[in-house]
Amino acid sequence: MKRIFINKQWCLGCHLCEFNCAFANSGKTSMVTALKDKQVRPRVRVEEHGKDTFAFSCRHCKDPICIKSCISGALHKDNGIVRIDYDKCVGCCTCITVCPYGAIARGDDGVMRKCELCVDNMDGTPYCVSNCPNGAIVFEERD
């Protein structure tokens, strides 16, 4: 299964992935409409330590602890992708507390949001990948 990986040496820390992610998941057709004067809640985050930066999102673990911990059965695997059923999520935040990567966050509606590889959004390539200006975020098969 293809997953998102970061080639840290090429990450510029420009944060464009975050804004493109928030836009891709907004359902809007323009980034301005989607993000202007709004709280931006991306599902990918750039971790920074001085000039060391890297973008980070859900690892889609083989045996995800978030799914095991989900009390309502909202988190589930779909073709290897860890996804959320928004109707089932009760917003208990247990997944947030167990995810070792900090890849899950709360959305504006109190329901959890996480990277779902843009499966419902774009053309099959995650938007953070196709819009990374330096090829730092890649979508590929790795062992």
């Binding site: 944060h15 464009l16 804004f19 301005v32 202007k36 931006v40």
Partner: peptide, 13 residues
Amino acid sequence: PSRCIKCRVCERQ
């Protein structure tokens, strides 16, 4: 200003 979303990419780059 009607387009700027204050993402600060310009500042970082």
